[in-house]
Structures are given as C-alpha cells and as structure tokens.
Amino acid sequence: MKITLVRGDITEEKVDAIVNAANSSLLGGSGVDGAIHRRGGPEILDECRRLRASHYGGGLPTGQAVATAAGRLPARWVIHTVGPVYSATEDRSDQLVSCYRESLRVADELGVGSIAFPALSAGIYGWPLDDAARIAVGTVRATSTLVAEARFVLFGDDAYAAFEEAAASPSRP
C-alpha cells in the first residue's frame, strides 16, 4: 500500500473514503468530526441517526468503525471511528490501533481503493503527536488490506512533522 502525507483539510480530499474522528454519539462534534458533518451536509447526520436507532443505540464503542455515505463531500464514504482519550496512567494504545485496523476492515468491505485518515486522538483527545503518528503509520503499514493508497491528512505543521518522522522510520504499532 502506498502511504502519503498531505497538509490540508480532510473534507477536501478526493478519495474513496475519509475517516472521521467521531465521538461515540455519531451525531457530530468539534474538530474533524464537526468539519465533516458541516461540509458533508445533513445526509451524513441522517445516516448516523439511523445507525444510532438501529445498531448503535448506546453509541459507537471506542476502537470500532462504521461507514455512512459522504453526503456533499468529494469522497464516496465516511468511515466513523471513535479514538480513545489519552491517559498517562492507562495504556490505551490498543484502542488506537483498533481504530486504524477497523477503519481499513470497513474500507475493504466497501471496496475502497483510497482512504484518508486524520491524526486520530491527537487533537482534543490529547494523544501526544509523536506517539499518535507512530501508532497510525505503523498500524496502517502492518494491516493486511486491499486499500491501495492511505493518506494521512494533517492540519498543522507539527502534525505533519510528526507523521513525516514516523513514515521515515520502520516503526511498528
């Protein structure tokens, strides 16, 4: 799989699927989640409400992933995943690894050839950028998938630098 890094706005990516750093409610929020819901329009929220009413009444659990159509976004699909909140006293890295693996599993089920990821859990959830980048790149590299291209779409220079360093090293999740 080809891994690329992009500075920019994930809502502008022309890929088959973008990954949403969702909250468990699936009903929108701040950061990447809010941007995807705003730009994608009410179609995404409508599908998320249907998911809540059927399969995810208690919300989407951390580390799992589910897809909706992308509404008005240039992508075809949005794969929603709930990253863990960082804890200095409890190792939750397996949950972050699961977000990437589950997103790729859902992508394979959808026949996705290209996917764009944000830096999951590295924003408001407080995960240190260097560690988030190492886990993200290492997990995507190590996951068996039919996806041909994975892009990490990074909003700021610090995130880009952390992912650039992770991509340059032969790291594991």
Rank of each mutant, 00 (worst) to 15 (best):
I3S: 04
T4V: 11
L5C: 09
V6G: 06
R7Y: 02
D9V: 12
T11A: 14
T11D: 12
E12P: 14
V15M: 05
V15G: 09
D16T: 02
V19K: 14
N20V: 07
N20A: 11
A21Q: 06
S24T: 05
S25E: 08
G28N: 02
G28A: 05
G28P: 07
S30M: 15
V32C: 05
G34R: 02
I36M: 02
I36D: 07
R38K: 15
R39S: 15
G40M: 12
E43W: 02
E43H: 04
I44L: 11
I44H: 03
L45V: 08
D46E: 15
C48N: 11
C48S: 11
R49K: 12
R50Y: 15
R52C: 08
A53Y: 13
G57K: 14
G58C: 06
G59R: 14
L60D: 03
L60I: 05
T62R: 06
T62E: 03
T62Y: 00
Q64P: 00
V66S: 00
A67W: 00
T68P: 06
A69M: 11
A70T: 03
A70D: 07
G71A: 10
L73C: 08
P74H: 04
R76Q: 11
W77F: 09
I79N: 01
I79Q: 00
I79V: 10
H80E: 00
V82C: 03
G83L: 02
G83H: 01
P84T: 00
P84S: 01
Y86K: 00
Y86C: 02
S87Q: 03
S87W: 00
A88G: 03
A88W: 10
T89G: 07
T89F: 12
S93I: 07
D94R: 04
Q95F: 10
Q95C: 07
S98D: 13
Y100N: 02
R101W: 07
S103G: 09
S103Y: 00
V106T: 06
V106A: 03
E109K: 04
E109F: 08
L110K: 11
L110A: 07
G113I: 03
I115P: 01
A116Y: 04
A116P: 13
A116D: 08
A116Q: 11
P118S: 13
A119D: 14
A119P: 15
L120C: 12
L120E: 01
A122Q: 05
I124M: 09
G126E: 14
W127Y: 15
P128G: 10
L129D: 12
L129W: 02
L129G: 07
L129F: 08
D130T: 11
D130W: 02
D131I: 09
D131G: 05
D131T: 11
R134C: 02
I135Y: 05
I135H: 13
G138Y: 05
G138N: 11
T139G: 13
R141H: 09
R141D: 01
A142M: 13
A142W: 01
L146M: 14
A148I: 04
A150P: 13
A150V: 10
F152C: 14
V153H: 07
V153D: 06
L154S: 03
L154C: 08
G156I: 08
A159P: 07
Y160Q: 10
A161N: 11
A162N: 06
F163C: 10
E165T: 13
E165K: 15
R172Q: 15
R172N: 13
P173K: 08
